[in-house]
Design a protein around this nucleic acid. Structure first.
Lengths: 246, 246
DNA sequence: GTCAACCATTTGTCCTGACATATTGACGTC
DNA sequence: GACGTCAATATGTCAGGACAAATGGTTGAC
């Protein structure tokens, strides 16, 4: 029987049991306490040892299977795949990404104000052409190098952008803080040549390749709450994601 | 009480009940039988109507929640978010994507053979530098336009590439067919200038921007089975993905 | 010695039942 | 009329049990 670390459960905690188990399992996998390729105990034994029911234990393991850290094979068992899985692309922003990486992103607000929606913006935000939307244009630095040119559009009834200093806070953090809950987003990642103005802002040469990302985020009710068109310097940034086949 | 379509269940089928329900729900959402924003019946009522237990009904709904088509709110109910969610990025290849879109991808094999692994390839495939690997270089067309230049590396003990005609079959389809099961992959999407040789093959101008994707795929045991470096024409291709916050 | 049949193991699916917790709206008090 | 309280409702979590199906090794027949 394969060994595994002792987990501690707190039944008084509001944190669900399956989540407590998943958290500790994930930690054990990341720090190598459970080696990659190792087969862990079967569900029933694990459940018994922790004093849980099998469904709860399964739910805990499922969390890690979804993250691509565990693989289950019927009739065989459950194995650890990897120690260092990067988290898959989540509903976060560049600001969050950089903060998590220990860097201190700096932002310059180029322009902010209400503008009439063009055809593109109106379609994505489910508004009529010409309707007022917030337009926010920012330049993000990492160190002293410009990294990304970001242009966001937000319906005027979602938040008030006049009242906030967006050079210190990330837009997504501000939206969450304002009670805007984003649940689903569609992203489109592509590439194109830099326009002259862009190249200048990003300290790139004319016609340099840029990595582009368009994102439309929706809230609980399916209402579009944010549409962004962003351009990144490809020598400084790339999108990484982990895919799991289920 | 919100109406919803009649579903048919086949208990004799090997397809799990929860999956049958999820499939039919998804179809109903996509074709608009259930309108976006509509609140569907509660889990207990749905389960009762279909003669299922609540856990099974929950499992069915969870599939669609994971896909971003449904949103659950405790104390409130379950709502339809979107009709036209694109599937999130999956463990498929460009060939699969195009086939699914009704297009007929054509492929030209530029070169195939065994080569010694360079530093990059060796690191990604967990091999020693200089070890033999399959190298496969292909050019993919959509219609008469070149779309992508694909360079794949595969450890020699995974499959035999000599025996197959890869101008007719997708590489991933061939791998699956050969019993290679890919479960997890890491992707990195970026952009760069086209090298002269690339530009020529892709019918692009010198120095044109290209969208690049590197992918390393792992099998059940965590063994790296494929590493690919690909370049796409950004005017013809982009990566689309749907993110769901959970 | 080879191959097929069998069996133990393990995950997959499905069931019933119970209580917890968040949300909303109605009710009642001040 | 405004505000707090309470109940109804729906999802979230958890338990315990049962059978099905896939896998891999073992046993047995030839």
């Amino acid at each position: 029987m394969a060994g595994h670390p002792r987990f501690t459960l707190n039944r008084a905690s509001p944190v669900p049991l399956y989540f407590q188990v998943a958290e500790q399992f994930e930690k054990a996998i990341i720090d190598g306490t459970i080696a990659p390729g190792e087969r862990i105990d079967n569900e029933i034994a694990l459940a018994k040892e922790l004093g849980l029911s099998r469904p709860t234990m399964r739910q805990a393991l499922q969390v890690l299977v979804d993250k691509g850290m565990l693989v289950r094979k019927r009739g065989v068992g459950t194995q650890v795949v990897h120690g260092k899985i990067r988290r898959s692309v989540e509903l976060t922003s560049l600001f969050d990404d950089l903060s998590a990486a220990g860097q201190k992103p700096q932002t310059t607000v180029i322009a902010v104000g209400k503008v009439p929606a063009d055809e593109d913006v109106a379609r994505e935000l489910q508004l009529k052409i010409g309707a007022d939307v917030w337009s926010l244009e920012r330049l993000r630095y990492v160190g002293k190098e410009p990294l990304a040119l970001m242009h966001n559009y937000i319906p005027v009834d979602v938040v008030d952008l006049d009242a906030v200093d967006l050079s210190e806070t990330g837009l997504y953090a501000y939206l969450r803080q304002s009670g805007v809950l984003m649940r689903v987003a569609r992203q489109r990642i592509g590439a194109r040549r830099a326009a002259p103005a862009e190249a200048s802002l990003l300290h790139e040469k004319r016609g340099a390749p840029l990595l582009t990302m368009q994102r439309t985020a929706y809230d609980n009710a399916g209402r579009a709450v944010e549409y962004g068109r962003h351009a990144y310097r490809p020598d400084l940034y790339a999108f990484e994601l982990t895919l799991v086949d289920r």
